[in-house]
Design a protein around this nucleic acid. Sequence first.
RNA 1: UGCGGAGUAGCUCAACGGUAGAGCAGCCGGCUGUUAACCGGAAGGCUUUGAGGGUUCGAGUCCCUCCUCCGCAGCCA
Length: 431
Amino acid sequence: MTARPATVEEVGRHVGASVELRGWLYNRRKAGKLQFLIIRDGTGFLQAVASEADLPPEVFELCRSLGQESSILARGVVRADPRSPGGYELSLTGLEALQAAEEYPISLKEHGADFLLDHRHLWLRTPRQHAIIRVRAEVIAACRDFLDGQGFLLVDTPILTPAACEGTTTLFETGYFDTTAYLAQSGQLYNEAAAMAFGRVYCFGPTFRAEKSRTRRHLMEFWMVEPEAAYLDFEGNLTLQEAMIVHIVERVLAKRRAELERLERDTAPLEGVRPPFPRVSYDEALRLLEPVEPLAWGEDFGAPHEVAVAGHFDRPVFVHRFPAKVKAFYMKPDPERPDVVLGADLLAPEGYGEIIGGGERLADHETLRRRIREHGLPEEAFRWYLDLRRYGSVPHSGFGLGIERVVAWLCGLEHIREAIPFPRLLNRIYP
RNA sequence: UGCGGAGUAGCUCAACGGUAGAGCAGCCGGCUGUUAACCGGAAGGCUUUGAGGGUUCGAGUCCCUCCUCCGCAGCCA
């Protein structure tokens, strides 16, 4: 009988057939003349049963001696068997080892965060990490499909930039031949240029922040989707964000339910993520906070404030019209109340905090110049940006969605470090 | 940077100021349906508990300095 290559994912289509799996030995349990090998091939995990009675002695011995994560070619007959986790198993007829792994460091027992992060390159092989990374891929695909479907054009923005978007204190500096460059902390300013060229655009890529923050929601390097649209006003921007979040959640629920189950994520709160999302002004938020986390007008939200406000709602909530002085220079002041800006943060429920920040941009040339000066930013560096207000300036809005925070929320993660394949944390850049 | 917690076997953790231990992994053996399998055995700490100093008859344990990690806060997505 010839063995056809197959993947664990599609093994159910090969019941009764002889197949070859190309993968790794995830675990083995021994029971005398039987051995249960858990084989993973990247698409899933499958139990293979090695029976001493049905195998040449040297193959049975090979099964016995191979270490965890040895690379193997496993041949056998696919059977449906309720005793097997997953419902299918492979009756082993042959096994070949490409490389026999010894003393694999990550056992199936518990490990600490530091140890696992040091072995992130191997940690990624576990079922839990598979589930998270698959959800992440789905979130990214959902963002792009949604925006493509809404007429947004992908326009990439640079990672090496000459100056700060929001000041230089949180920028990673790097050499650029004879001068200095900074790693982008946002594609927004370039996005605005692209929006004036193409109307509706978005960028998607890694962003870098040299903030010395060590919390469960911060990465030094994280991925952000940033749509920007000409002729989009503040309200339209909120509606767009709402539709996009609903799209992402629905798609993950539809296509990655098995992964959420593996993560033991209670999906009930996610099922309730439907429009409209509540909208709370900064002033209203202060009133909500009064009894629990009082905040003086003019102060920016801290993490406890975000959690307290979001705790009032069963779905994401917009907090809008923050005091102008705590927000970035490019935000448009509310024409009816110039001490607040037409910006909004979207706070995820269940304590996950801000997942989107955005708003309507300042379109007036002179006001923008003044704000740049007021923020102590070098006007020269923003000459090209100011040009956008000199040559056909229009009302426009946009936002940035943090991929890892959305993934952490949807997966119910305790820490954002699991939401990205190789997290860059404060004092950690290995592996 | 501030506050709090923790560094003991490869991993996860015990040990009142009084002889450093267990589970898991690895190794040897047993078991034909295991589900992080289980059972038995030997070994594993270079006089050794992150590093250095101090108190004490005696320090993993108490004190000081430093290092590393974790949590929280600030900042933000």
